[in-house]
Design a protein around this nucleic acid. Sequence first.
RNA 1: GGCCCUAUAGUUCAAUGGAUAGAACGGAGGUUUCCUAAACCUUAAAUCCAGGUUCGAUUCCUGGUGGGGCUACCA
Length: 575
Amino acid sequence: MTAELFIASKASEAVKALYGAETAPESMQVQVTRKEFEGDYTLVVFPLLRISHASPDATAEALGEWLVQNCPEIEKFNSVKGFLNLTLGNIYWQECFRGIAADKDFGQLPPTGKTIMVEFSSPNTNKPLHLGHIRNNLLGDSVSRLLKAAGNKVIKCTLVNDRGVHICKSMYAWQHCMNGATPESTGIKGDHLVGDCYVKYSQLEKADPSVNEKVHEMLVKWEEGDPDVRKLWETMNGWVFKGFDETYKALGISFDQVYYEHDTYLLGKSLVQKGLDSGVFVKDPDGSVWCDLTADGLDRKLLLRSDGTSVYMTQDLGTAERRFAQNNLDSHIYVVGDEQNYHFQVLKLVLAKLGFPWANQIFHLSYGMVELPEGKMKSREGTVVDADDLIAQMKDEARSVSEESGKLADVPEEQRENLYSMIGLGALKYFILKVDPKKTMLFNPRESIDFNGNTGPFIQYTHARICSILRKASEKGMAAASSGAELNPKEIRLVRILAGYPQKVSEAASALSPALIANWCYDLAKEFNQYYHDTQILREPDSAVRSLRLAILDRIAAALRSGMGLLGIELPERM
RNA sequence: GGCCCUAUAGUUCAAUGGAUAGAACGGAGGUUUCCUAAACCUUAAAUCCAGGUUCGAUUCCUGGUGGGGCUACCA
């Protein structure tokens, strides 16, 4: 039971004893006491005034008296303007910490028995990944980890948009402008080479708009299975996949299932027929099929073109059905930018109209765009922030900061490079994930991402410091012990933050917001750094106190690893 | 035009309807014979506007204003 819930249930008992009224513990408003007041948790008494028929102060005093009298865990109270601040005794916190220390998987919530699929990344194969994709990938990866920590079975998947007119554009430009260039012949990473073709195509089309028709012919040939077109398509996609794999690897991201649009784009047609049969869809005189959503406040939505071919929506209907059926899913989360809000609104409605009971188990994790100070990234203006460049730049930045300090001078070269990657990536991931997903965020390419303050490296550094102390303690033969001494007020604050972790995991998982975890990690690291600054650990003469402190440090380090792990960020033992 | 999202210090981000709106960067000033100064401490600085609901509103509602997005037989 969390401390908040414990207090809430006791408060509920107090209300019954004092005023004879039944209240649900969940209805009690309990919050962590603000720093400037004395106490651990605060009960807001305003909502109880209609029961007590007394002033806020009188109610708070009465409840406080009762709680101190009747709950041995509650040591004392004070009340300020309707806020009842309660202080839990040292024994309570010692036991609380023992519980945390004994829990090997602290923060891993019990199994829910649910299976959740998370689709993210879903790139087009005509361009390399950029900053926008990074936000998508990091969110999808982190949310997957969060849902797993919340006790769910999670299947990560991606849908590669590997066919369509955009791919043909790159193919056309390659045939006409690239003189047979390959990644091998040029040394250019495959996805970048294909991206260059795409840029070339834009120039071609500007000079001669008629190339557009040639590209369309190519698309038709692709659909007909023309061997030459298919061969080139396979070759160029192969280059891109190889390039993407490198980027995914650098980001530390992987998938359990990979879908390709060329396999799925025809799916869903049978569902359209089913909808026609049951009368929820209509066929226009020209043969196109529509779903009328005007009654739901939306428009008519096209599901099949007049020539009988399927559109994006048709495919998504089909893939959703297939995925739910094959994986026995309880829910499916799509990590897709907020420009597609309408699409997913329609998708859910259409699936509901088709009678699928799981239609409302589909969630669109809609995240905001990453913008530059000038606004959106525009490939035409060359302002697109390339994923590979950015990752490399972050590592370089980590290297230069580290070399300036000289702290890693005695670490072997290979490990050092590893640490630079870990730190650079930590800065990038934290920078992006600490922001509420649904909000548009800003990235300024002219200022490198910070390594000081509320950043990934700050938390990594905190962890490295703890590890350093624990290493020294171990060298000196000093053991850690999770009990045997009193906790001082700063230690109680630390334990209180630690104790809130499982609740935080639960909140973050249901809100699909890694930002909540990022903030929690920062709070813990910040609190620890203050503690570290004015508390002796290794030099503490009382061995019982010292052992307890070492145990607290050990658990803080573990909690930071766990929390940052949910963000996909590794923590170094040195830096 | 219609629909959706959004608005908080100079800047980037926080704040289940609760106390004096928190941080970080940047600004000003300070801390290293002491477990890693990527740290710590002090300081100045903000809720777009107008109403409403409430004991209490940054948060909920209405109306403005600014910013973004969607409104394709593209994906």
